[in-house]
Amino acid sequence: MSPSRPRIVAGNWKMHGSRALLRALVPAVQQGLPAAGRCQVVFCPPAVYLGELAGLLQHPRCAVGGQDVSAHVSGAYTGELAAAMLLESGCRYAIVGHSERRRYHGESSELVAAKATAALSAGLLPIICIGETLADRESGRTWAVLSAQLTAVAELLQQPRASEIVLAYEPVWAIGTGRTATPEQAQDVHAQVRNWLQEQASAIGKPMLAGQLPILYGGSVKADNAAALMAQPDVDGALVGGASLQADEFIAICRSAD
């Protein structure tokens, strides 16, 4: 990880959790984190718990994130959550384009870009997810898939707050499967993403931007593989699933990022 880029570990609870878990886990994680450290720790629980979570946070390195955000500012969009609503609930971050949203809710890369734009415009930091399936990888299409997903959000790099964008590479074949990309596989993809960023940023006259944006790795990240993954030069943190629901595991991952 570069010393000049933010280090972030975000815990995506998905559709797991309860008020009891919230009240036990969050204080335990905060107690286990040293006050000093470079890693920003983000809790992303289901939306119904966001306000209560914000009230529990007392650690200077901890923040709240939404698991999704609407592309719309407001309106008759039943079930949607606007970026302003997430901000008012205490959120600083919002995940967009997670593979489960793309797969189960049919979200296109264009919709992901619209959501990321809405988040950034409102003051949230979007965590933009990209990733390929096992079939994509085995057929040699990994970069073709990822570059298409990235191209959809390329215009965001021209935004005034572009330096606050966070990218997250999550190979779909490693999410919830117990399979994890090797540190070398993760670094290879992250380096390609970084090179893409450099090309795009240079083309719009912002060459420094490519070195500023953190790229997180996600996909069965656990305490026993986090250190090796985050020792790679272009891996700047982690987007964590199941392990973020276990205090000891999550603390260990955060310490690896430090």
Rank of each mutant, 00 (worst) to 15 (best):
P34M: 07
R38K: 04
A36K: 13
L33K: 13
Y77M: 13
G66F: 03
V48H: 14
A71W: 12
Q31S: 05
E88T: 04
D68E: 12
R92Q: 15
Y49N: 12
P46W: 07
H72K: 04
G51F: 14
H72A: 15
D68P: 04
H72L: 08
E80G: 09
V41N: 11
A76K: 14
G65P: 08
A28R: 11
P34Q: 06
Y93W: 10
A63H: 05
G66T: 01
A54R: 01
E52Y: 08
R61F: 00
F43K: 03
G79L: 15
L53R: 15
L57M: 12
Q31I: 14
D68L: 13
L33N: 03
A76V: 11
C91Y: 00
V69H: 03
G75E: 15
P27S: 15
R92D: 05
S99A: 08
E52R: 10
L57K: 10
V42C: 03
F43N: 03
A71C: 04
M85G: 06
L53N: 07
V29N: 02
F43Q: 03
P45V: 04
A76C: 12
I95S: 05
R38C: 03
H98M: 12
L86Y: 00
A76P: 10
R61M: 02
P46D: 03
C91E: 00
G90T: 03
R101H: 06
L86V: 00
A28D: 13
G66D: 08
A71Y: 09
Q67C: 07
A94W: 09
S74V: 01
V73Y: 12
L87F: 00
A47N: 06
L81S: 09
S74Q: 08
L53K: 03
V96I: 01
E88I: 09
V48K: 04
Y77D: 12
A35K: 13
H59N: 11
A24N: 12
A35N: 08
G65H: 15
L50P: 08
A71P: 02
G37V: 00
V29C: 06
A84L: 06
C91H: 07
Q30S: 09
L56P: 00
A54V: 11
A71L: 15
G90L: 02
E100P: 01
A94S: 05
S74W: 04
V48M: 12
